[in-house]
Write a protein that binds this DNA or RNA. Structure first.
Lengths: 146, 146
DNA sequence: CCGGATAATGCAATTCATATGCAACAAGCG
DNA sequence: CGCTTGTTGCATATGAATTGCATTATCCGG
């Protein structure tokens, strides 16, 4: 009796690409990478295996609510990597990973205050990176300078 | 020369419902509420006006990555309301709003350290609320205890 | 107060990510 | 080695969000 499923070639392959892609990728990215490596795989299979991968703690959905590819969900490989959150530049889309213990501690504190046992969190800081701030309002996003 | 568009009845109506619904609603919720109030409105119109509303700071997209309705984006009314973040119970789906200044301060700090000018953030704490913790492992969700 | 320029709306049809039914197939177990 | 059961692929379905086009309403100048 297997715990979560059978160990198939496809799953091994998915494990590999998720690890290889690491940063922030979409299901489509996985397929493309696999295809480039010679392993053809149907999107269906990828989609069907994503829950298993996330459930197993191999990857997790990033909170960039569909900004990356064409509205596709983005994931990142987390297994064996230290936890981190993200800073996102609104202008250039640059993503910076950071981790800050004090922040985590405070989050625990908040959860405790509300009677919650904290399991995980999604934190995304949105701002303007130094380069873009210096570069001036070149790629002005909002339009309204407020 | 108008700044952002014309003031139409539909937009006023959307303003109202967003304010009325307040908490966490989907575009579909807006349509349904409007319909209940006698104002028929096409989804197209709602979708086309959402960017205007968010751009104007009336509403914002919540970060619950499509969990609410059937995968639809959720929004909340923020104009004139104090900023807050969310605690989400993984079992019962309960959403608790909170705000914690120290947390905001630390986020500013993180951004500064990385040379970012912070504009906004999304923070969502995921855990198990007191009720569900007491209620026992009734609706066990994850399975893998990490 | 009116009439034209132009943006907003509704409808239908489209796009795109993700899910599902079903038949073929492969992994694991005896 | 053969059976059971989970997995894969294909085609198709779903459902949110977007777009083209004709119609209508808003704004603005007269």
């Amino acid at each position: 009796m297997n715990e979560g499923g059978r160990l198939t070639g496809d799953r091994e392959a998915l494990l590999q690409v998720s690890c290889m892609l690491g940063a922030h990728f979409t299901p489509e990215d996985m397929r493309r990478t696999l295809a480039a490596g010679g392993s053809q795989m149907a999107m269906t299979t990828i989609y069907r295996n994503l829950p298993a991968l996330t459930g197993a703690g191999i990857i997790r959905r990033t909170t960039f609510c569909e900004e990356d590819d064409n509205g596709a969900a983005t994931y990142e490989h987390v297994w064996g990597r230290p936890h981190h959150d993200h800073l996102l530049c609104q202008r250039c889309g640059k993503k910076v990973e950071f981790s800050y213990d004090a922040l985590e501690v405070l989050q625990e504190e908040v959860a405790r205050r509300h009677g919650f046992r904290l399991l995980s969190h999604h934190l995304e800081l949105i701002g303007v990176c130094l380069d873009c701030a210096r570069g001036g309002p070149a790629g002005e996003t909002g339009g309204a300078p407020t």
